[in-house]
Design a protein around this nucleic acid. Structure first.
Lengths: 148, 148
DNA sequence: CTTTTTGCAAACAATTTGCAAAAAA
DNA sequence: TTTTTTGCAAATTGTTTGCAAAAAG
């Protein structure tokens, strides 16, 4: 991401946040600039380190708060499931998971959609392909029935 | 899973473990029976509660140790990535992740393999489909280059 | 008997929270 | 000047670890 394009995205995000009624503090602007500038998939700590270079008095919890706020607004996402505990799975057949965004329940399903061989071919430049994990998230029937 | 089929699986697993040189303590047998019996995707705590009914003196850390041992042997798996920290992602385009099993580096990729509409159709019984997250795990080129 | 495994209690690491002071609107 | 946000420090939560006693082979 080149500097000019980055600034364009920062300004766009700032506008979106203001429209959402979010106060633009220097800390928040610094955090969002760093996430947008990050090539990879930074954790809170590394965003924190990057932000501190420009706003030395920032605290780690503000970085967390800002990152989750951006996530809640759908402006960034997180890798992996957001379940706080490890979940084990004794199903040894190849399968995938449907996870409810509200109650967290996870159900197994199988699909013929994924051609492992074709995927592995496309990803050959990255490395070997050992396993595939498809997670579909949505509102489960039971949760959809309740208000919300 | 009916009782008879369950016992068959328990015995099969016990045999596998012995072949792997693992000592069959009552705690371990109870843990593996509970994981096999579990319909869903239990966390360590709920396996712990179930095991305690039969082996009251069992401790939570033994449950963890046993579950991870089964995982290491490839006999069960875990849901979600096993990264200890949340990773944020500012890439707003629909994309998927290739994650290295050794170094944990995550790279984005896109694919035309997944037909969201068709998937949503197949999963209609579970609930709505909001997002898809495909995670491919393997050994990245850089890690494959090193010994191991 | 020798080696591994257990239960306990304490340690850990990532993340979250309560709150008074500081900053935004 | 009213409301939100911050930084700090302490709390919380899920998981792991060191160790002496107990159990497995």
């Amino acid at each position: 991401v080149e500097r000019e394009e980055l600034e364009r995205r920062v300004e766009a995000l700032k506008a979106t946040l203001q429209r959402a009624g979010v106060r633009l503090t220097p800390q928040r602007v610094a955090v969002l600039r760093e996430v947008l500038a990050s090539e990879g998939h930074p954790d809170a700590e590394s965003v924190f380190r990057a932000v501190k270079k420009h706003v030395p008095e920032v605290s780690l919890d503000t970085v967390y708060r800002t990152l989750w706020m951006l996530t809640d607004l759908g402006l960034i996402t997180t890798l992996g499931s957001r379940q706080p505990r490890v979940q084990f799975d004794a199903n040894t057949r190849p399968h995938h998971h449907y996870v409810c965004l509200r109650c967290g329940v996870a159900r197994d399903f199988e699909t013929g959609e994924l051609d492992v061989a074709r995927l592995a071919e496309g990803l050959a430049g990255f490395g070997s392909v050992e396993t595939l994990h498809l997670e579909v998230r949505g509102l489960c029937a039971s949760c959809a029935g309740q208000a919300g």
